[in-house]
């Protein structure tokens, strides 16, 4: 009998986490902007980030399923190839069935930039810019900018080496000083202007802007040699296209700060 109760209890628990997952769609925190030096710059290239709102968690699989139900043009059978490649929602059983082996509270992955962008739009939100994302993601539990701390970078890098971290549930990594979870540790995330990272084919004059980051002596100019983790993120962004659906790439939404 006790076993039956336990089963029912765990079933209810499962349902409730799914429901919470859905109701979190408006769950955002206020990020107080400021000036910061991005990976590619030096002191003269401080970037000002305005105040903005950011989702506390990455968008989950259950939340995304809900979006697809309301927007059938984003089901895996209906989606246009120009907007999402063949890996879009590849693990789903069919248009409206998640792969049951992975929790509905795990972050959604295998979604393209177009899909992520439209998801956020449907919530009245948008994707964060690279600068907003990086600004929020340089914080740890106690500091707005934890990048000088080698342990912090070590933490991020050790995640990059952890297999299948994208199957973990949201909230399973640390909460940073802004109240945001999982910026590091589960999935990589789409940004609105991911295609502003230039690695090849640049105009001649401006070719130095990003290429020096990745090339020999030029890369010594990068502000933060310790920040190999950020280097990886920029390199990754520069290597993907908008219809790519990658198994460790998810997203969260942002919005204008309300006054």
């Amino acid at each position: 009998m006790a076993l039956v109760f336990r089963i029912i209890y765990s079933f209810l628990l499962l349902i409730s986490t799914t429901v919470i997952g859905v109701s979190q769609s408006d769950n955002m925190v206020y990020i107080k902007g400021g000036a910061y030096v991005p990976l590619y710059g030096n002191d003269s290239s401080r970037v000002v980030v305005n105040d903005f709102l950011l989702d506390i968690y990455p968008v989950t699989r259950a939340e995304y399923l809900n979006f697809v139900k309301n927007n059938p043009e984003w089901t895996k059978s209906a989606v246009k190839r120009i907007f999402a490649d063949g890996n879009y929602l590849i693990s789903w059983k069919d248009d409206y069935t998640l792969n049951q082996k992975i929790s509905g509270s795990a972050p959604i992955t295998n979604v393209s930039w177009f899909a992520a962008k439209n998801y956020c739009k449907a919530q009245g939100k948008r994707l964060p810019t690279i600068d907003e994302w990086e600004f929020a993601a340089m914080a740890d539990e106690t500091r707005i900018d934890a990048r000088p701390d080698s342990l912090y970078n070590q933490y991020i890098l050790s995640w990059y080496e952890t297999p299948k971290a994208f199957n973990k549930e949201i909230g399973s990594t640390f909460k940073n000083i802004w109240g945001v979870y999982d910026l590091h540790g589960l999935v990589w995330e789409w940004t609105q202007d991911f295609n502003s990272v230039l690695l090849s084919g640049e105009s001649r004059k401006d070719v130095d802007a990003d290429r020096n980051l990745f090339c020999g002596s030029g890369s010594i100019g990068a502000t933060d040699l310790m920040n190999y983790a950020a280097f990886m993120r920029y390199a990754f962004r520069g290597s993907i296209k908008a219809n790519y659906s990658v198994k460790n790439l998810g997203f969260r939404c942002a919005n204008k700060a309300q006054k």
């Binding site: 084919g201 105009s203 401006d206």
Partner: peptide, 14 residues
Amino acid sequence: NYKRISPLDFTHSN
């Protein structure tokens, strides 16, 4: 890919 690098200049793919 493109990015504004100053008020009047962009770096961009050709």
